[in-house]
Nucleic acid binder design. Structure first.
Lengths: 260, 260
DNA sequence: CAGTGGTCTAGACCACCTT
DNA sequence: AGGTGGTCTAGACCACTGA
């Protein structure tokens, strides 16, 4: 059973979605929620903190929390996995494998993806399709820890992330760097767009709870297919603007990893 | 004076930056921190929650928190304001005004920026320069509440956001939609790139703590100038992927706003 | 099994907003 | 001045990790 504060947060969220607390209106006070749910104030505060974090409500000290808007719950997994995202949106995802081989990280990869030079990884390149139409070219390096596991999977259907999660690997953090690039000849052909047209590039490093990097990826979306959405607030800021030529954050991590 | 838990978080953060807790190593346990700082456990937990939120440490129940990496602190304001960001990066920002007039939101604007149709706003279009080189074209609509205030400002230097903040307007939330577009003839000329080259587009709605939208903007960056960075974690997720043709989140808000 | 983090309680005082 | 959220304390029990 999930924690009480999570249940309360979910209930409030549902109420917002149903329009019981319209946009611009106030949430009940912490005291009222304490009475309504019969819990301590700390528990109520944990619940509303979740809503704040997700940008459902805003507040300032001394005044009641105000509903900013219902936010479609999109889980971390859905951000992480193309397949899981596509399914949640009612689309049918698939993939065409361009390359899948285990090798060591070369200099060019290290530069492009920020993976540690020389590490043994699975180099996987695929075209991702939505309802049969190509929308993204994907290049992912899986850390040695999971490389052979992934290589043994069916790489054309289903979610690799999901299957790794089932095996006990946990994704905890992700760093994203988002910019725009022009489609090269190869990409243009794969995506069915003109050479030079704009692509949305998302480079990502995903880390386990122990701080071990599990994968590095470079996804390039057709500009007309996908938009990335970010919500941030004064209290919780995870967004930054970087100069394109800024220093790549060093990210080398030792430590052992063992699935449960 | 800032809160005790914020001081503790800042101290720990500093220690991580100084390398006292190297990447991959464990943070002291909550119990140890309680003794070290002479506070209750709840206070310590608030402090480490901040570090977790910012992605400095990761954890799983039962095991100590692990240092993921030092994170450059970038404030909400720096994300919000081109000027403040540029200065923090050691660059000199400036602007060239293309248009500045008060009018009502037209259908095209409403569609493009998500602003409510018919609202009276300041329509401000500028080219933004970094050390004299054009890197971004910006189109911002300022809500009627602040429109005349902004129009009276010097629009070529300094930060509008900063000056609004001084007047008591508080930015609390921002929604960002990020995608890629091709440069049109006008944009290409303004930015000094070839027509059709890739631009990184960031559309943003910024809201005050009371849920009132203060500005809508559409920023288009030269692809070689800027990258947007996002960090998210299993517990705190503010990132989402949207289909380009997905529904624009309705965002109409009443309620009064009054600067302090 | 000992250590550690996750959840929850009950109560206190203060800072800020609203009226 | 009364309501509301922000911070902090002290203690409890449980779930998970690691040796």
């Amino acid at each position: 059973m999930s924690a009480r504060y999570q249940q309360i947060a979910a209930e409030l969220r549902l109420a917002v979605d149903r329009g019981e607390y319209p946009i611009g209106s106030a949430l009940p006070s912490e005291g009222e929620l304490v009475l309504r749910y019969g819990v301590a104030r700390g528990t109520v505060r944990q619940a509303v903190a979740m809503l704040e974090q997700d940008g459902v409500v805003a507040h300032r000290q001394g005044a009641r929390r105000i509903v900013v808007g219902p936010v479609p719950t999109q889980s971390f997994s859905e951000m992480q996995s193309f397949s899981m995202w596509a399914v949640s949106q009612g689309h049918v995802p698939s993939a065409r494998v361009l390359r899948a081989q285990i090798r060591r990280v070369a200099h060019a990869d290290a530069e492009r993806l920020g993976a540690p030079l020389g590490e043994e990884v699975l180099d996987l390149q695929r075209v991702r399709l939505l309802d049969g139409a190509p929308v993204m070219v994907e290049r992912t390096l899986y850390a040695g820890l999971v490389a052979r596991l992934v290589l043994a999977m069916d790489l054309t259907t289903g979610s690799i992330t999901e299957r790794l999660t089932e095996r006990g690997f946990v994704y905890a953090h992700a760093d994203h760097r988002i910019d725009a690039v022009s489609a090269g000849v190869a990409e243009a052909g794969l995506l069915g767009v003109r050479r030079g047209s704009a692509l949305l590039r998302q480079r990502r490093v995903t880390t386990s709870p122990t701080g071990v990097a599990l994968e590095w990826s470079d996804d390039r979306y057709r500009a007309d297919a996908v938009t990335i959405s970010v919500r941030n607030s004064m209290s919780a800021n995870t967004l930054a603007r970087l100069s394109a030529r800024g220093p790549a954050p060093a990210r080398t991590v030792q430590a052992a990893e063992r699935p449960r």
